[in-house]
Design a protein around this nucleic acid. Structure first.
Length: 603
RNA sequence: GGCUGCGUAGCUCAACUGAAUAGAGUACCUCACUACGGAUGAGGGGGUUUUAGGUUUGAAUCCUAACGCGGUCACCA
């Protein structure tokens, strides 16, 4: 959990103000010492009078007062002491409902109406690394990678908005037996074909050879089994597998012909990845390649042995004993002296820390690796590595289909490029049906379809709690109504359209208008934005932002249908509503941008 | 099997980390347009929060157990 330094929390939201006021009053009346965190403040339920509610039960025992008596005393004191903030209170069954002064909200609007940076915090001097995407160079990106990319990118942006300096990194898994499989298959079946000669995207091209390898491998194993060999033995004895294993050895030995093939094929894949990353708006400040990092961490094994954190077995393999921590023994160096995944990750953690000195290093990796990261952090701590405490595994749940898990062997993997294209096509189709942007140039249209199609997809994947596994229903994802990206985008476009027509209006705010219920509701929602961004950063959870934006858009739409902006009751009201509309559009834009989603001026 | 995560409307998700009558979207059924943008708004039905106990003034939330579904327990990464 990311701890925000208390001196930096100066987003004085109403809720924070109420908590502090409550603390002052309780301390003054009862001469006890309490902290703002002990006080629970909720938005008052619509059926009761008031705006915010202090829940009193927590203090009933400590102060030896009945909830009603406590509420009365506290309510009287808090309102008397904060006449600018509160206008009244009522107590119902242990809940102290406070009414906030109309003027407070008008002041809020006046203060923020021209603040282009509303919600954005100044630098707090802290650095964070966010590692995400982690692709393999033997196959193209799929739906799971999309959730990963969108999450990583968004969390980086949310942290930036909260004043952190952020470095986005990517570790590319570009070596190992699986890469050699594609290479062998290309040698056997490629006949010199290239992405250019076939007109294919490089990552798909290489991915196809990975599939071809598995097909050929299956055939060979089946033949061996048919000739009487046992399955397990046949899997090791298949000639194509033996060739592949030899190739891995050749690669590790740096054999020139293998290295050349490897560079070529990886080059094709990277070209394909670049296209996809550009399309989905993902980027990295620094990319690490496992072919460079897989040797890291070897010296750490030595120092770990010296420190007696590690121990050596008779076959000379090196281990760490974590049974005291409720875990198992874990291998950190093979008997042949080569390092394992864990060792590389320790090495990379140290390497990254040396380069960036990040206070926190976030790994956006699926929850199937929970155990690995638990162990990684623990080993780093035992080794006394400075980077250790900053390691944070942002464990996200798998994306499943209504039919179950995605399985490459069963061909149920949803390809990232295909999915993005499909979403963009649907956006085009729906836009054409509505026919509102017939005057757009073809370039503008292409950009608009991208904005909407990708917006729908990103919003769909980001709107659920990252920690939970989610089900991706293709039919639901292409729905542009309700809790969706296009709904938020539409609301933004609509506001912009209205504002365009009011450009010449001379704004005049008397600063004394009385807010109508729907105006007040919208204002309250707008006031929440900085706290939502802060909470999203603390929780590493973009879904908080997505949910907030949807509710804000909904609130605006409700306000909009009831109150005319252009034909407001008075010039003052008109100005006020224009301010609210502008601020809403700005918050929608800013909020969507930290999710990696653009909002159109028209759609 | 050990460890670990999850189980909330038909479906997809919320619930401020223990508070008022568990909320949204979707689907289904009504209603409102010659609109400052209908990719909209208003309303309706739909829940014993898997089950059984326990703690508490108060439990979807914490504890115990059962059932169900995942993940992980590789000298793969």
């Amino acid at each position: 959990m990311l701890a925000l330094p208390s001196e930096n929390v100066k987003i004085m939201s109403v809720v924070v103000k109420i908590k502090e006021a409550a603390v002052r009053s309780i301390e003054a009346i009862y001469s006890v010492s309490i902290k703002p965190e002990q006080i629970l403040v909720n938005a008052t339920k619509p059926e009761f009078e008031g705006d915010y509610t202090v829940v009193l039960f927590a203090f009933v025992k400590q102060l030896k007062k009945s909830p009603d008596a406590l509420g009365q005393e506290l309510g009287e004191h808090i309102v008397a002491q904060n006449p600018n903030l509160f206008t009244g209170f009522n107590v119902i069954k242990g809940f102290l409902n406070l009414s906030v002064a109309n003027q407070f909200w008008l002041d809020f609007i006046a203060a923020q109406k021209n603040n282009q940076q509303y919600g954005i915090q100044p630098s707090n001097g802290k650095k964070v690394m966010v590692e995400y995407s982690s692709p393999n160079t033997n196959k193209p990106l799929h739906l799971g990678h999309l959730r990963n990319n969108f999450l990583g990118w968004s969390i980086a942006e949310i942290l930036k908005a909260n004043g952190y300096e952020v470095a986005k990194t990517c570790i590319v898994n570009d070596r190992g037996i699986h890469i050699c499989k594609s290479m062998i298959a290309w040698q056997l079946f490629g006949h010199g074909a290239t992405p250019a000669s076939t007109g294919m995207k490089g990552d798909h091209f290489v991915g196809d050879y990975y599939v071809k390898f598995n097909d050929a491998y299956k055939v060979e194993v089946a033949a061996l089994v048919a000739s009487g060999m046992e399955q397990e033995h046949a899997e090791k004895a298949a000639p194509i597998m033996k060739e592949t294993q030899q190739m891995l050895l050749d690669w590790e030995a740096g054999k020139p012909s293998v290295m050349e093939l490897w560079r070529n094929m990886n080059g094709w894949v990277y070209e394909g990845f670049d296209t996809t990353y550009k399309k989905i708006g993902s980027d990295f400040d620094k990319t690490y390649y496992e072919s460079n990092t897989y040797i890291l961490g070897k010296d750490l094994v030595e120092s770990g042995l010296e420190k007696k954190v590690f121990f050596q077995k008779d076959d000379s393999s090196v281990w760490i004993d974590l049974t005291g921590d409720g875990l198992d023994e874990k291998l950190v160096r093979r008997k042949d002296g080569t390092s394992v995944y864990m060792t590389q990750d320790i090495g990379l953690a140290v390497h990254k820390y040396d380069e960036f000195k990040a206070d926190q290093s976030i790994y956006v990796v699926g929850d199937e690796q929970n155990y690995h990261f638990k162990v990684l952090k623990l080993i780093c701590q035992k080794l006394g590595i400075p980077a250790a405490d900053g390691i944070y595994h942002l464990s996200y749940g798998m994306v499943e289909l209504p039919t179950g898990k995605m399985k490459s062997r069963e061909g149920t993997v949803v390809d990232a490029d295909d999915l993005v294209d499909a979403m963009v096509n649907i956006a085009q189709q729906k836009t054409e049906e509505l026919g509102k942007v017939k005057d757009f140039t073809s370039e503008e249209l292409v950009e608009l379809y991208d904005t909407i199609g990708l917006g729908a997809l990103k919003f769909f994947l980001l709107r659920v709690d990252p920690k939970k596994k989610m089900i991706f229903n293709p039919e639901e994802s292409i729905d542009f109504h309700g809790f969706t990206g296009p709904f938020v985008q539409y609301t933004h476009a609509r506001i912009k359209s209205i504002l365009r027509k009011q450009e010449d209006t001379v704004l005049q705010n008397s600063g004394t208008e009385v807010l109508l219920p729907l105006e007040l509701e919208l204002t309250k929602h707008l006031e929440l934005f900085p706290s939502v961004l802060e909470e999203a950063a603390i929780e590493h959870d973009p879904s908080k932002v997505a949910i907030y934006l949807f509710e804000l858009a909904k609130t605006f739409n409700g306000f909009y249908t009831q109150h005319s902006i252009a034909n407001a009751e008075s010039d003052e009201k008109k100005s006020l509503r224009i301010y609210l509309s502008k601020l809403t559009a700005q918050v929608l834009q800013r909020g969507m941008s930290v999710l990696g989603i653009r909002v159109p001026e028209r759609m």
